[in-house]
């Protein structure tokens, strides 16, 4: 059974059709990225799945529950999921450890607190007041609170916005660790390198519809699209589009008798493909 199963999801705000019929199937253990420009319906979709918003039409099963579920059943459901929201700046007067410990008390089988603290790299900050944390440290606390209940499914919303490159790498390593524990992760991001580094599959959403679901490497026919081989021939830069770049390189190599001047083999980047898919409309 899939952890997330969505069929025909629709949601409008007045005249604006934010989500116009989204289908998603995400099996257990997968890291799935939802990519899309602002206003594409990404946040609306995820917030419906998280149970924060209602929907107009469609069927949803998250770990076998409908996110509309209320009462004790909703608590049972939330016991098995973790949510890391875009921004939370609350509880500044509590220390990191107090907060993590308190949240662990909400769940039926919380993870070990020390383990979580070291997984997110906050063991040295456990006694610090939250308001004295840096942006990156705060974000790691958000993740700690998201995973403290040992969730089977984790929602990560734009997790590394505002991170410096080093902090992002560290964060990615943390997500890789979670992959190791078998946690299913639904990640929304507008960083393509992030989706490429982490996701098993990506879905591109635009204008309230999913336009493609694929592996990051295969998105938009990227894996099979023609490569561009370029090199210097005398004073000129020459290029050749080909399905068989290796053959072209071999040919050139024998032509030049070894080293090919300024050789480059270029495939369209995920960004090139993505921008083409969403019609150049980003942010």
């Amino acid at each position: 059974m899939n952890v997330i199963e969505v069929k025909g999801l629709k949601k409008s705000y007045g005249q604006v059709h934010a989500v116009r019929g989204v289908d998603l199937s995400i099996p257990a253990g997968e890291i799935f990225a939802l990519l899309g420009p602002n206003g594409a319906g990404k946040t609306t979709t995820v917030e419906i799945l998280e149970g924060f918003r209602g929907r107009d039409a469609g069927e949803i099963s998250i770990l076998g529950f409908d996110p509309k579920t209320q009462g004790y059943a909703a608590r049972q459901w939330r016991d098995r999921i973790g949510i890391v929201l875009q921004s939370a700046a609350d509880a500044g007067d509590l220390t990191v450890i107090e907060t993590v410990k308190h949240f662990s008390g909400y769940y039926s089988k919380p993870r070990n607190i020390d383990e979580v603290m070291s997984a997110v790299g906050l063991e040295d900050k456990s006694g610090a007041l939250i308001r004295n944390l840096s942006g990156g440290q705060r974000r790691r606390l958000d993740v700690a609170l998201g995973i403290i209940g040992s969730p089977e499914l984790l929602f990560l919303d734009e997790p590394t916005t505002g991170f410096d490159p080093e902090a992002r790498r560290a964060f990615w390593a943390l997500i890789e660790q979670l992959r190791g524990t078998g946690t299913t992760i639904l990640l929304t991001t507008h960083y393509l390198d992030e989706a490429e580094a982490l996701a098993d599959r990506v879905a591109v959403i635009n204008d309230g519809l999913i336009i493609e679901v694929s592996t990051p490497a295969g998105l938009g026919g990227r894996a099979t699209s023609q490569a561009i081989v370029s090199w210097r021939d005398g004073s000129q830069i020459k290029t050749e589009a080909t399905d068989n770049p290796t053959a072209v390189v071999a040919r050139l190599s024998s032509h030049f008798g070894g080293e090919i001047p300024e050789l480059a083999v270029i495939r369209p980047s995920l960004e090139d493909i993505y921008l083409k898919m969403i019609g150049g409309r980003d942010e």
């Binding site: 929201l85 939370a88 909400y106």
Partner: peptide, 15 residues
């Protein structure tokens, strides 16, 4: 508390 996202975070837990 609502403005800074503290309530939404609580809503997402089994509390």
């Amino acid at each position: 508390e609502r403005d800074v996202g503290g309530l939404k975070r609580l809503r997402g837990t089994p509390m």
